[in-house]
Design a binder for these strands. Structure first.
Lengths: 172, 172
DNA sequence: AGCTAACAATTAGCATACTTATTACTGGTT
DNA sequence: AACCAGTAATAAGTATGCTAATTGTTAGCT
C-alpha cells in the first residue's frame, strides 16, 4: 500500500542503489541508463507544472511555443512556424485552429503566393505576453530550483547537444 | 526559402549569438533560457528517433515504459504500473487497452480484491524484450553520440534532479 | 500554352497525455 | 446489517504529437 506512492524516479534511485553489477548492455536494460526515458519524464513533469499556470490565462502548452515565435516575429507563414517550433505542419494546423478559435491569432492568405498563409497575432495574442512570460519564468525557476546556475547552464548546453545529435541523423 | 530549413534549435543558437543584453527577466523572454522548452524538444526529438525502431517490431513508445516495468516485475496492478511509469491511471487504461489488443499483455481481475486488475505479459510480450532492448540502447547511444561518458552521466543526474524538484512541488 | 514537379496547407486516423466524473468494490464504523 | 469513505478501474472530452494521403497553387520545362 505504501507502494502506491512510488514513482518511476524513485524506482530509478532504488535500482541504482541495489545494482548488482554485470555486463553494461548485455543484461537487463537499466532504466536509469535510459536518457530518452528521463528526458520524456522530465518534459512531462515540467508540463504538469507549467500547464496550469498557462491555463489560468487561457493558454495551452502547445500554444506557448507558437506565441513565443510570433512575438519575436509576427506574420510568419505556417510552414515557417512549424519549422521553427519543430513540429509537423499537420500538427501546426490544428494548434493554429485552436489559437484562432481562442482569438489569439488571425490567418491571412498571402496574396503573392496563395499557397501560403501568414499568421498574425490579435490584440489578445499580444496581450498574453505580459501575463504568460512571468509564468514561464516561474515554471523554469521551479524546475531548476535544485540546480546551481552553472548546472542549469550545463543542462541547457547538454540538452542542446542531444537535440543537435538527433536532428542531424541521416534518416535514411 | 532557405529559411524553411531553420529549426527552433538553430533559432536558439542565432539568438544566443546576437543577444543584445539587458535585464535578465524583464525584457523579451529568451527561449534559450527555457529549460522546459528544451526538455520537451529533446524528448520529441528522441521519440522521433526511437519510435520507428520500436514500430519495426510492432511496439509503440507508450508501451515501452510499461514493458520495462513488467519485465522487471510481472503481474503488477494497473495502479502500481501507472505510479511507476508516472502517468495517470486513465492514461494507463488506454495504453493497456492497446497492449491487450496487440497481444502483449493479459488482464486478470484480482480475486482477493476485485477492484484490482493484475497485468501479465503474454509470451509475445516477453519475447519483445530481446528485440526491443537493443533498439532502445541504440537510440540512447544515438542521442548521446556527442557527449562524453562523463557528460552523459551528468545529464542523467541533472535530469533526475529536475524531476525531483518538480515532483516534490506542493501542488496546493 | 500545357504538363509536371514541388510546395503549402489540410484532412484523416492513430497514439499518448491530461482532467473530471462514474462505477464497482472494499473495509471500517455505527 | 447498513452505511460511508476511500480505492481501482474506466469513460468522456480535450490537447498535442505523429504519418500518410489530398487539395490547391506555383514555377519550371518543353
Amino acid at each position: 500500500m505504501t507502494d502506491t506512492e512510488r514513482t518511476a524516479f524513485e524506482v530509478v534511485r532504488r535500482r541504482e542503489a541495489g545494482k548488482d553489477g554485470g555486463e553494461p548492455d548485455g543484461g537487463l536494460f537499466a532504466i536509469e541508463e535510459s536518457l530518452g526515458y528521463l528526458m520524456n519524464y522530465a518534459a512531462r513533469a515540467f508540463s504538469r507544472e507549467l500547464s496550469p499556470r498557462l491555463a489560468a490565462h487561457g493558454a495551452r502548452m502547445g500554444q506557448w511555443a507558437v506565441l513565443m515565435f510570433l512575438w519575436a516575429q509576427d506574420g510568419q507563414t505556417q510552414r515557417e512556424l512549424s519549422r521553427e517550433v519543430a513540429i509537423e505542419d499537420a500538427t501546426m494546423v490544428r494548434t493554429l485552429d485552436r489559437m484562432e478559435r481562442d482569438g489569439l491569432v488571425r490567418r491571412e492568405r498571402n496574396p503573392r503566393d496563395r499557397r501560403q498563409i501568414n499568421i498574425f497575432l490579435t490584440e489578445k495574442g499580444w496581450a498574453l505576453r505580459d501575463t504568460l512570460v512571468p509564468e514561464a519564468i516561474e515554471g523554469n525557476r521551479s524546475a531548476s530550483r535544485r540546480l546551481s546556475e552553472d548546472e542549469r547552464r550545463q543542462l541547457l548546453d547538454l540538452l542542446g547537444r542531444v537535440i543537435g545529435a538527433l536532428e542531424e541523423q541521416p534518416r535514411g
